[in-house]
C-alpha cells in the first residue's frame, strides 16, 4: 500500500511540480534573451549590417557551435581547444598572483611601515587597465628574446609577456584584500592569542590566516574575473592558439560570426571560473555568521 502510494507520488506528477516551481526562474531570462536577440535581428537585418544578425551567426559559425573540439592543424581548431590553451595561460598567471599577492599582502598587512610605504603605489598601479600593461610587458620581455633560460623552460618571450599581463592585472585585488584582511583580525581573536600566549607561528597559522581568509577569497574571486578579462589583451599579439587570439584573428579576417560565438564562450567560461572559486571559498572558509 504505502509503496504504491510512494510510487504514485514520485510519478511524473512530482517532476512536473518541480518544473512548475522552476518555471518562474527559467521563463524571465529566456524571454529577456529572446527579446534581445530579436532586437539584434531587427537592428542588423538590413542590406549591409555592421554585424551579422543572430540567424546569420548561427548558420555561418555552425561548425564552431556544434563541435568545439575539432582540430584541423595550425590555428584551425575548435573553440574548446582555444579556450583550453587560454585557460593554461590564465592558470599560470593567476597562480602567480595568488602566491605573490597573498605573501606580499600578509607582509604589508602586518607591517605598518611597509603598508604606509607601498599602499599608495599599489593604489595607483591597480587602476592601470590590462591593455596598458601590454606594451610595457612586451618591451621588457622582448629583451629576453634570445635568452637560453626561456628556451630551456619551453617558453618564449611573447608567451611570457602574455602571462605577465594576466598576472599583473589580477595580482592587485589579491594583494590589497589580503593586506586588509590581515589588518582586520578582530581584537577579540588577538586577545585570545595574547591571553593564551600563542607563539608567532601559532598566531600566524591558527589566527591570522584563517581570520583573513574571507578577505583573501574575496580578492581571489575578483582576481579570477580580472585575469580572464585580461586574456584577450594578453593574446592580442601572440599568434597561435587561444581564445583571445581567435577573437582578434576573426576580427582581422572579417569573420564576425565566429567572433561573436567566441565572445559567448568567453563569457560562459568567465562565469564558470567565478563560480569555481566561489565554491572553493565556501568550502574552505568558516565565518562567524
Amino acid at each position: 500500500m504505502t509503496s504504491n502510494n510512494l510510487l504514485k507520488q514520485s510519478s511524473p506528477n512530482v517532476v512536473f511540480e518541480w518544473l512548475q516551481g522552476q518555471f518562474k526562474f527559467i521563463v524571465p531570462p529566456v524571454l529577456a534573451l529572446g527579446s534581445l536577440l530579436f532586437i539584434w535581428q531587427l537592428l542588423c537585418g538590413g542590406e549591409t549590417p555592421p554585424l551579422p544578425p543572430p540567424t546569420k551567426v548561427v548558420t555561418e559559425a555552425w561548425k564552431f557551435i556544434v563541435d568545439p573540439f575539432f582540430d584541423n592543424g595550425g590555428t584551425d581548431k575548435g573553440l574548446g581547444r582555444h579556450i583550453f590553451e587560454s585557460l593554461k595561460r590564465v592558470g599560470i598567471g593567476y597562480s602567480g598572483s595568488v602566491v605573490i599577492g597573498i605573501s606580499l599582502g600578509i607582509l604589508i598587512g602586518t607591517n605598518v611601515l611597509m603598508y604606509r610605504a607601498f599602499d599608495p603605489i599599489f593604489q595607483v598601479l591597480r587602476t592601470v587597465p590590462p591593455l596598458a600593461w601590454l606594451p610595457i610587458s612586451s618591451a621588457v620581455f622582448e629583451s629576453f628574446k634570445e635568452s637560453e633560460v626561456l628556451r630551456m623552460l619551453g617558453t618564449d618571450a611573447v608567451e611570457l609577456s602574455a602571462v605577465f599581463v594576466i598576472f599583473i592585472t589580477s595580482v592587485w585585488p589579491v594583494l590589497m584584500n589580503t593586506a586588509v584582511g590581515v589588518q582586520q583580525v578582530p581584537q577579540d581573536y588577538r586577545n585570545v592569542a595574547k591571553v593564551l600566549r600563542l607563539s608567532r607561528f601559532e598566531y600566524f597559522t591558527k589566527i591570522l590566516v584563517p581570520s583573513a581568509a574571507p578577505y583573501i577569497f574575496t580578492g581571489l574571486r575578483i582576481a579570477i574575473g580580472l585575469s580572464w578579462l585580461a586574456i584577450v589583451a594578453a593574446e592580442m599579439l601572440k599568434g597561435g592558439v587561444g581564445i583571445g587570439f581567435f577573437i582578434w584573428d576573426s576580427y582581422n579576417s572579417g569573420k564576425y560570426s565566429e567572433m561573436i560565438v567566441a565572445l559567448f564562450y568567453v563569457g560562459i567560461v568567465g562565469l564558470l571560473l567565478d563560480k569555481v572559486v566561489f565554491y572553493i571559498s565556501k568550502f574552505l572558509v568558516q565565518t562567524d555568521s
Binding site: D188, Y189, N191, V192, K194, V195, L196, R197, K206, I207, P210, S211, A213, V285, Q286, T287, D288
Partner: peptide, 18 residues
C-alpha cells in the same frame, strides 16, 4: 596577559574556523 588569568569574553570570542 597570560593563561593564569583566563577571560570569558563578552562576545565569546571563539575562533569560527575551529
Amino acid at each position: 596577559p597570560g593563561p593564569d588569568r583566563m577571560m570569558v569574553f563578552q562576545n565569546h570570542s571563539l575562533l569560527p574556523w575551529l
